[in-house]
Amino acid sequence: MLQEVVATRYVTPLREGGSLPGIVEADDLGTYVMKFTGAGQGRKTLVAEVICGELGRRLGLRVPELVTIELDPVIGLAEPDQEVQELLKASGGLNLGMDYLPGSLGFDPLAYEVGAAEAGRVVWFDALINNVDRSWRNPNMLVWHGDLWLIDHGATMIWHHNWPGAEASAAKPYNASDHVLAPFAPDIAAAAAELAPLVTEELLTEVAADVPDAWLVDEPGFSSTDELRRAYVAPLLARAATVHERIALDAPAANRPSQAPGWLTERLPPRHRPSAGDGATAAARTGREGGR
């Protein structure tokens, strides 16, 4: 079960995120990026954050520690922004917190080199959870103390938005053409060999148990929260065994603009950037080999 803390101070909103997360301080003296149950995306976003974030951590990927945060909306009364005020009022009770990484920088592929092995693990993991939000447009990765950290897993497991079609949806291929790590020749075959055997029913049951009951109750079609948790386990377990055979690495949809500042890109030494053909070759080979 995730550690539960109590929010003691609302610090500031993070307007880069579509759900308007905010930085808060808590009674354990920690600082967290808080995601709200009252945000427009709803509680399923938080469920996905917990299951996929905790699964990634257990597979050895760097994901900031997650906690649940009890929020009394009164702590935001001094916040002048009406939109933030309304969000806080709608989010009383249990919310999600992600450990704040002070001094971290958003990932940019021109400023940070990623090895084929690490790129392969991240792409394979994103294929497993069907993450549609780790593209060059929005990498959802941070660099902290020289390491790559994965954040924001709310746009994953899209099948849980339509449970009757979950089995068919989970069986679909994963298009990694626009994945931010596609240019680094990800070694997907090696990642699958390393990580797929770790994705057991026991492990998935464990991470599903981390989701608070309050975010699972009253789901149409399910008689209990335990039944719903089992529904989260099944698609991921089935997908883990074969998803590496269905990862496409084709040409990207558009040119990838760098988000690095000019003063940085001017000082970066030139390096080889694998072509789309390299990626397609890697995909074909894969298909054959099928803290704070």
Rank of each mutant, 00 (worst) to 15 (best):
A280I: 10
H244K: 04
P220H: 00
A189Y: 14
V24S: 00
P212E: 07
L61R: 01
M34T: 00
A241T: 13
N130R: 15
H179T: 09
G154V: 03
Y10F: 11
A280N: 05
A248W: 08
D250N: 14
F36I: 03
S91M: 13
D28M: 03
L101K: 12
V50M: 08
E25M: 05
L237M: 08
L203W: 11
D213G: 05
D147R: 15
V47M: 00
L20V: 11
T200A: 11
W163R: 00
P186Q: 02
Q3G: 04
V114A: 04
V123E: 02
V24Y: 03
R246W: 13
T286V: 11
A238C: 12
R58H: 12
T31D: 02
D28S: 11
Y232N: 06
S177N: 06
W163K: 07
P102Y: 14
I51P: 12
R58Q: 15
G53D: 02
A78N: 09
V11P: 05
A238H: 14
A78I: 00
L150V: 04
P197L: 13
D213M: 01
T242G: 09
D178N: 15
N175P: 01
E25V: 05
N95M: 11
R256G: 05
I75N: 13
S169M: 04
G17L: 12
C52Y: 00
Q85L: 10
A166V: 03
I51C: 09
A234W: 01
E227P: 02
P64Y: 11
L59D: 07
G30A: 14
I23D: 05
L87A: 13
G165W: 04
L237P: 00
Q85C: 01
G53E: 07
V50G: 02
V180R: 01
E113H: 15
D133Q: 11
E167P: 02
A214I: 11
E113A: 15
V143D: 15
V11E: 09
L110W: 12
H145T: 02
S223M: 08
Y100V: 10
R229W: 08
V143P: 10
E245P: 04
G40N: 06
R230P: 01
W144Y: 13
A241N: 00
V5C: 08
L195E: 06
P235E: 12
T286Y: 04
R121P: 10
H161A: 07
D133E: 08
P261V: 02
G106Y: 09
G262I: 04
A238M: 11
G106T: 12
R62C: 09
A192C: 10
M157C: 07
L29R: 12
I151A: 05
G40P: 03
V84K: 05
G290R: 14
M157Q: 00
R15K: 08
P102V: 15
L204N: 10
L29K: 06
G53A: 06
P212C: 03
A170V: 06
N130I: 05
S104V: 11
W136E: 07
L29G: 02
S104W: 09
S275F: 05
P274A: 08
K44T: 11
L61T: 02
D28N: 15
G40F: 04
A117S: 11
D28R: 03
L110Q: 13
D152E: 03
T68A: 13
Y100T: 01
K44L: 13
G42S: 09
G290Q: 14
I129H: 12
